[in-house]
């Protein structure tokens, strides 16, 4: 598809699609070296509806924004046609050593880059073919589409909110969303978006059972207050009450160290035009204490133009 197919581009749906490597580990796909006895089924099975949706919608591209590709200077996009290799998670190497292979929609990447620049953002194209794609990107994409038969675009998370302050760069994530939406429209893509992040993000400081990481008898929410925060936010999203969501975002980030701080969800909502429609809830679960929800914004058969 080329940019000549103007104005037919649309966003079909957006997904809150968390990326704990435990989900891939629990599933035991052939790409992942470590093997498990299962675990985290509540979350893993929540992705089933997403997988079905990908088969039905057959989007041209899945665009993911990942908190685990942290960049200090601006926002980066993968821009190598084919990336493959072994991605070993530096934090959980015993759970995630994944042989990945992905086709990148470089034309769309370049237009996102250009549109971002036009809006005043610092943007960069990652063109090194030996780049090791981060586990956040891979886990989200695997859980959404384990067949890897849909091209992808991955966008980095500028880490200014973590380094400077919570509210730094939030405006930039909104602009990045707008740039993404414009690029989709210009390139004529039928796109699905993925915000690869957890909700509450305070977690255990030790592995509960190092001998059996998938020991579900040791998995639980980090705290009742963190759980209540997650439910409050999920409720707002289910109601489509994005005004309340954005209003409480600073407190949510501060009190639960919510990973939405990395900008993934803000980017996605902005790209979708901040749609005040009820998000569909597919499942919630904790992973080493963090709160994770799989949720869908179905923008309808016609998509959002």
């Amino acid at each position: 598809m080329s940019t000549s197919q103007k104005s037919s581009g649309k966003i079909l749906s957006g997904w809150l699609a968390p990326h704990p490597p435990h989900l891939v580990y629990g599933e035991n796909p052939p790409q992942n070296e470590p093997k498990s006895r299962g675990g985290w089924e509540g979350l893993r099975f929540a992705y089933d509806s997403c997988r079905k949706s990908m088969k039905t919608l057959k989007p041209d591209v899945i665009i993911v924004h990942s908190p685990h590709w942290q960049t200090v200077v601006g926002h980066h996009v993968l821009c190598v046609p084919k990336l493959s290799g072994l991605s070993v998670d530096p934090i959980f190497p015993h759970l995630f050593r994944y042989h990945f292979s992905m086709e990148v929609d470089c034309e769309l990447s370049r237009v996102i880059h250009d549109e971002g620049r036009a809006l005043g953002l610092t943007m960069k194209k990652m063109e090194n073919p030996e780049f090791r794609v981060d586990y956040g990107t891979i886990v989200t994409l695997h859980m959404m589409n384990p067949d890897w038969d849909i091209p992808v675009v991955a966008i980095s998370a500028n880490n200014s909110p973590y380094f400077y302050d919570d509210d730094v760069a939030q405006e930039e994530f909104l602009k990045l969303g707008t740039a993404t939406q414009k690029a989709i429209e210009k390139t004529g893509r039928r796109a699905v978006l993925a915000a690869s992040c957890t909700l509450s993000h305070l977690h255990f400081a030790k592995e509960p059972n190092p001998e059996l990481p998938e020991d579900m008898s040791r998995e639980h929410v980090m705290s009742q207050s963190q759980y209540e925060w997650d439910m409050k936010v999920i409720e707002m999203l289910r109601r489509g009450d994005l005004d309340s969501y954005f209003k409480c975002l600073p407190a949510f980030m501060k009190e639960t160290f919510a990973e939405v701080k990395a900008g993934s969800l803000t980017w996605m909502l902005a790209a979708m035009g901040v749609p005040k429609i009820p998000a569909k809830f597919h499942g919630y679960g904790s992973v080493i204490g963090t709160g994770n929800a799989v949720m869908e914004w179905d923008l309808g058969a016609g998509g959002l133009k």
Binding site: I91, N128, R132, D134, E207
Partner: peptide, 27 residues
Amino acid sequence: QWLSVLGQSVQMRPEVKGRHVDENWYD
């Protein structure tokens, strides 16, 4: 720059080799 989250980590592989591309300064 070698961060761990769940406890400590110690490199134990006798020979650790490969090519690392920095996630920021990949160019």
